[in-house]
């Protein structure tokens, strides 16, 4: 399964280094580096500036592996879990938007500590309510097992005062992990992002 995990991580991250790969795959960095080297040797990824990038051949391989995986997942159960996820999704997006903007016109300059703290409390509250659902999702789709730890790590950083972990892209911020999970659920259910976006769910 590590081949699938690493290929998918390379696809989602664009450019994947061993450290990020280790976090996404829930393995130690040495094992992750070995896995990335294997992908490069097989021609499924190419080395770029300190990491790897998926190749077109790697994408085909990934699609095949994802199709195999999809057949093993209890689709009706996962569909139900996705619906539960969707209820949280709107809330998460509203929280992140409030984090970034104090109103429609005004970006949050992060000078008002009380405002920021209120938003962070909402995020921490959502995390607490979402964690049980995340555990059930990971049980239904075992490859997603590293996600609970990634969410916990992000909210932990935020609580320690590292606010980049609310929504910073590239970094494994809460929003980054959330969005990758969303992408995984769409893929596991054989849905298309464009259709989900048009339905107002995945945008």
């Amino acid at each position: 399964m590590s081949e699938l995990v690493l290929l998918q991580a390379a696809r989602l991250k664009g450019r994947l280094d061993a450290e990020a790969a280790a976090a996404c795959a829930g393995m130690d960095p040495a094992a992750a580096q070995a896995g990335l080297d294997a992908l490069v040797d097989a021609g499924d990824a190419k080395a770029v500036g300190g990491g790897v990038r998926i190749t077109p051949q790697g994408r085909e391989r990934l699609d095949a592996l994802l199709a195999e995986e999809r057949a093993t997942v209890d689709q009706p159960a996962l569909t139900g879990l996705y619906e539960e996820f969707d209820a949280f999704n709107g809330e998460l997006k509203a929280i992140v938007t409030d984090w970034q903007m104090v109103d429609e016109q005004t970006p949050n300059a992060h000078t008002d500590r009380a405002y920021d703290q209120a938003v962070i409390s909402r995020l921490a509250d959502l995390h607490g309510r979402f964690a049980p659902l995340m555990a059930r999702i990971a049980a239904a789709a075992p490859r997603l097992a590293p996600y609970p730890e990634r969410f916990a790590a992000a909210i932990g950083k935020v609580r320690e005062g590292d606010h980049a972990f609310v929504a910073r892209p590239i970094a494994d911020s809460y929003h980054t992990v959330w969005f990758e999970l969303h992408e995984e659920l769409i893929g596991l259910l054989g849905l298309s992002r464009a259709a989900e976006a048009a339905a107002g769910r995945a945008v």
């Binding site: 989602l12 992140v96 892209p169 992002r193 976006a197 945008v203």
Partner: peptide, 28 residues
């Protein structure tokens, strides 16, 4: 998509066809 973030990082501006002010593109 998450895959697009690498491209967003190097761009001077970003456009999408679908999505509102809380969409992934907007947040990123």
């Amino acid at each position: 998509d998450p895959d697009d973030v690498a491209g967003m990082v190097v761009s001077t501006a970003i456009l999408t066809e679908i999505g509102g002010s809380t969409s992934h593109a907007a947040v990123v």
